[in-house]
Amino acid sequence: MTGNASSPTVLTPREITLHLLGLVLFLGLLGLWYWLSTGARAVPTLIEMLQDDDPSTRIVAAEQLGQVGPAAQAALPQLLAQATGDGSQHANTTAAAALKSIDLKAARQVMTHFMPRLQDHDAQQRRTACAVLGSLGPVAKPAVPTLLPLAHDSDELVRRNALIALASIGIPSPPVMTALLEGLRDSSALVRQTAATQFAFTVPLTQPAIAALTPLLNDPDRSIATLARSALDKARPDDAAQLESLGMMVQHSAARDYALHQLAQFGPAAGDALLPVLPLLQDDRPLVRYLAAEALGAMGPAAKQALPLLQRQRQDPDPVVREAVADAIAGIEAAMVPAESSDKAARP
């Protein structure tokens, strides 16, 4: 840069402008770096990282691919291999968690791979199977019946992992709740603590849960008592403000999955949140469409208004979503029959 010693100011106006332009260029380069390193553009690099010898690299790559979502389809074979064949449990769970955001069918393949391992003689195999199924979240709903007996496994860590997995799957809510309530009475403090943690942070609070958690406030283990307090202090599904807040959360992409999952576990109590859920049946992400169908199905007769939309979604490109839609329609129609007959009986 050419300086001018006779300039009336320390830097000439031209120099100041050039420096500012340099700064804009620098910021532009940073933006370009970010753009190239995130989203679908990063997928080829992330696929390469999945082949790395270092497990932490494979884990981070899987997490990032999950963030990319359906645009990371190209990584499906590598992610499937990592979810089912990697020697590191953390690498298995992160790959499985990524798959549920990218392709539901692939996530179900992982579920099918691990379900027989729930009956393995080796406790470590059962622990890993529980952990991976849990990382699939609500997509692993068909695994719940096979997971339930593991909540009574002879191995303490298997019981703990089974409860975490059941709470992460969350649906159908009644058997999951029963298993977690039994977990609160487990002989092992670790398992009781795990069950209390799920009520405090993951699953909605039901009346039987309130009854079971209240005595735990006096548990000699202070951590269990604190978790029971946190669980009892949180908002209940019948709280109108809680429903309103979840209704708002489904409209924000960052909280959408969580809010829909919660509503799917609320059951008929979630009926007031119907309207914000309806448009999500046509969302770009299969996971969101799946969760929306599950939430509507759980609402029962309150989701009657959703039936025409659900009928249209019978043609969803994703088979797992189609299955959830069919279940939701069947569930709503079945729940409507007794409701309608009781209406007719009440009429004079």
Partner: peptide, 25 residues
Amino acid sequence: GLLTAVPFVIFAVLILLHLGAAPAQ
């Protein structure tokens, strides 16, 4: 890094405009 850099970039512009445009005489 970017979040921390924001005030520093604003400060850098301030240096340029406040010190760079100061009378040299």
